[in-house]
């Protein structure tokens, strides 16, 4: 497992968060915005393991929680879980494939959005949206858009974290 630079990790989180807050609405399509912070957490879990993925998920999640309108800690919980799960399966999947990365982001984006609904229903006991409508208008477009955006995001992160020299990336 390659060693991760924490400075790079936290700089990337700050940069991605700033992009999310100030710029990402400009590339919104039909209400869907690509979740590049989730792609970052998936990337860290995939290449640096479960511990690093969890740390990235918690940090990115709390950053998101400050600016989001939601119960404080929701994003930290969901992204932390994503980081752990991706890290746990990272040696069992073909991570050098672009398609695998896209599918992973698609799956975990959907997982995060459905987890949010489950938290709403069973933990917060607040109203949750119509399931079919939520899937059709929110989960599917956001996950598809995020998985497409994951390709350049992963390319950028592989370059920044200096992983081009890894045997499975080459």
């Amino acid at each position: 497992m390659p060693k991760m630079s924490r400075t790079l990790l936290y700089t990337s989180i700050a940069l991605f968060l700033a992009i999310h807050i100030v710029l990402i609405n400009r590339i919104e399509i039909c209400g869907a915005k690509p979740d590049i912070l989730l792609s970052l957490v998936v990337f860290i879990g995939l290449f640096f393991g479960s511990g690093a993925g969890f740390e990235a998920g918690i940090a990115a999640g709390f950053g998101k929680d400050i600016f989001a309108f939601d119960y404080f800690g929701t994003n930290a919980f969901i992204l932390g879980l994503v980081g752990i799960i991706v890290g746990a399966v990272n040696t069992k999947i073909f991570r050098e494939s672009g398609l695998t990365r896209m599918l992973l982001v698609f799956f975990f984006c959907s997982f995060g959005m459905y987890s949010r609904v489950l938290l709403s229903r069973f933990v917060f006991r607040s109203g949750s949206p119509n399931f079919a409508e939520y899937t059709l208008f929110s989960v599917f477009p956001v996950s598809a858009y995020s998985s497409l955006a994951a390709l350049p995001v992963f390319g950028y992160l592989i370059h920044v974290f200096g992983l081009k020299e890894l045997p499975d990336i080459v």
Binding site: L17, H20, I21, V22, I24, N25, G31, A32, K33, D35, L37, G63, K64, F67, A68, F69, D70, N75, M113, R116, S138, V142
Partner: peptide, 13 residues
């Protein structure tokens, strides 16, 4: 000056 970074709520700052 900012927007909700999550995809399940819509708010602005």
């Amino acid at each position: 000056i900012g927007r909700d970074p999550s995809n399940w709520s819509n708010s602005i700052i």
